[in-house]
Amino acid sequence: QEELVKAFKALLKEEKFSSQGEIVAALQEQGFDNINQSKVSRMLTKFGAVRTRNAKMEMVYCLPAELGV
């Protein structure tokens, strides 16, 4: 569980995922086979993730800066 949270936060820091499906796929690539869209959705809510525009003006998920991840 701890490893999943770390990987999840690291992915969001990249600010390149525009959908929950993309986050699920990226986590599965890292070996988290039991991850699915509903789990990702709950984690996004739990950590207060928001959708914002990145440098390329794409809408992407990211974590609020005050979490200091």
Rank of each mutant, 00 (worst) to 15 (best):
E2I: 11
E3I: 10
E3C: 15
V5G: 07
V5L: 12
V5D: 13
A7D: 01
F8V: 06
K9S: 05
K9N: 05
A10Y: 08
L11P: 00
L11E: 00
L12Y: 01
K13M: 14
K13G: 09
E14V: 06
E14D: 07
E15P: 09
E15V: 06
K16I: 08
F17R: 03
F17G: 03
S18E: 06
S18A: 11
S18F: 06
S19E: 08
S19T: 15
Q20K: 15
Q20D: 07
Q20S: 11
G21K: 15
G21A: 14
E22H: 07
I23W: 01
A25S: 11
A26H: 10
L27S: 00
L27N: 00
L27H: 00
Q28L: 12
Q28S: 08
E29R: 13
E29M: 11
E29S: 12
G31Y: 02
G31M: 03
G31S: 03
G31A: 02
F32M: 02
F32N: 01
D33G: 13
D33A: 14
N34I: 05
N34Y: 12
I35K: 00
I35Q: 02
I35E: 01
S38T: 11
K39R: 11
S41L: 09
S41C: 05
R42N: 11
R42G: 10
R42L: 13
M43Y: 05
T45D: 11
T45S: 11
G48K: 09
A49C: 04
A49E: 02
A49Y: 05
V50N: 05
R51K: 13
R51A: 05
T52D: 05
T52A: 14
T52E: 07
T52M: 15
R53Y: 13
M57E: 09
E58G: 05
M59L: 15
M59W: 15
M59Y: 14
V60R: 03
Y61E: 01
Y61H: 02
L63E: 02
P64A: 06
P64W: 03
P64K: 05
A65H: 11
A65N: 12
A65V: 11
E66I: 07
E66S: 09
L67C: 11
G68P: 15
V69S: 13
V69F: 05
